[in-house]
Computed example of a mutant assay.
Amino acid sequence: MKIRSFLYTVLLGLTVTGCNSNNALYDAEGTFEVDEVIVSSEVPGKIISLNVEEGSILKKGSVVGVIDSIPLNLQKAQVEATMAALHQKTMDVRPQVKMLKDQIAVQKVQLANAIHEKKRTERLLKADAATGKQLDDWNNAIEVLQKQIKVQEQQIKVQETTTAVQNSSVLSEFKPLKKSVAQINDQLKRTNIINPINGTVLTKYAMAGEMTAIGKPVYKIGDLSVITLRAYITETQLAQIKLNQQVKVLVDSSPNSYRTYTGTIIWISDKAEFTPKTIQTKEERANLVYAVKIHVKNDGYLKIGMYGNVKF
């Protein structure tokens, strides 16, 4: 009996020691996730090409697909034709102004001649070689010519003003049409599907030949070079960590070994929450914990959804 009691005590001690050793191996656990970007079409239409496959690695800024641009090109051509028609509706005032100026030039020659004849008549009148009526006639002629010149000059101003107002009314439609062309050009650029980040295609939602709409997902991409471990800690552990702190991340490599990584704490939740349902026991799910995010450089072995353990 004494020997049995001694062996039971030794085995119990080894069991407790083993449990404490496992608990000390890590301080928190969680699952790996990645920041995902859902790429959508920015214009509606038929997908002409889509060079995207799940698992393929894409570079930021690369053109991975094209939306049919024929409807937009036709719309642009229609607007440009309307703009050309507006120019034909405008009036050119230059021929009319030239005609009026030519008339003024002739009248000025006549005025100069009338002034010359008036002076000559005044000299003849002093020599009693002309009559007063002749002098009055030349004065009247000069006055008429001066008035005619003023009228012609006013007509030029009126004609220029009227034409400018008419042209302004026609061309007022030009600016909105020009803005429409700029808008269509912007939409034409958006017919190219541009990959927004460096990363790996996680899910493909559309195929070439399908119709798409604005905001409709085409594919989902994520940067797997740096993966995020979302772990949960207790309130007592909260005082042990800080932002940018280096921690040790452990991932199962085999039933009896771990793969070790260095991680950096990038986010600590300021609100407590109930432990997620992925935790095994019901009692542990009832506990309040704080979520933390840890960036880990991925060597290719880390996958989305894998479990990871953290040692502070």
Score class of each variant (00 low, 15 high):
residue 16 V to A: 12
residue 16 V to S: 13
residue 31 T to C: 07
residue 32 F to Y: 03
residue 34 V to Q: 02
residue 40 S to N: 13
residue 40 S to H: 06
residue 44 P to S: 14
residue 47 I to K: 05
residue 56 S to Q: 07
residue 59 K to L: 10
residue 59 K to A: 12
residue 61 G to Y: 06
residue 62 S to K: 11
residue 68 D to C: 06
residue 74 L to Q: 10
residue 74 L to V: 10
residue 79 V to R: 01
residue 81 A to N: 12
residue 88 Q to D: 15
residue 89 K to W: 06
residue 95 P to M: 05
residue 103 Q to A: 10
residue 106 V to Q: 12
residue 111 L to D: 03
residue 111 L to P: 00
residue 112 A to N: 15
residue 116 H to Q: 15
residue 119 K to N: 15
residue 119 K to E: 13
residue 119 K to P: 00
residue 121 T to F: 04
residue 124 L to N: 05
residue 126 K to D: 10
residue 128 D to S: 14
residue 129 A to Y: 15
residue 135 L to Y: 08
residue 141 A to P: 01
residue 145 L to C: 03
residue 147 K to M: 12
residue 151 V to K: 07
residue 155 Q to L: 08
residue 164 A to Y: 13
residue 165 V to A: 11
residue 169 S to R: 09
residue 173 E to P: 01
residue 175 K to M: 13
residue 178 K to A: 14
residue 182 A to Q: 15
residue 192 N to V: 03
residue 199 G to L: 01
residue 208 A to I: 08
residue 218 V to R: 01
residue 225 S to W: 02
residue 231 A to I: 06
residue 238 L to T: 03
residue 243 L to A: 09
residue 245 Q to I: 14
residue 246 Q to I: 12
residue 252 D to L: 10
residue 254 S to Y: 09
residue 264 T to E: 08
residue 264 T to A: 07
residue 275 T to H: 07
residue 276 P to R: 11
residue 281 T to R: 03
residue 296 V to A: 00
residue 296 V to R: 00
residue 300 G to R: 07
residue 305 G to P: 03
residue 306 M to F: 14
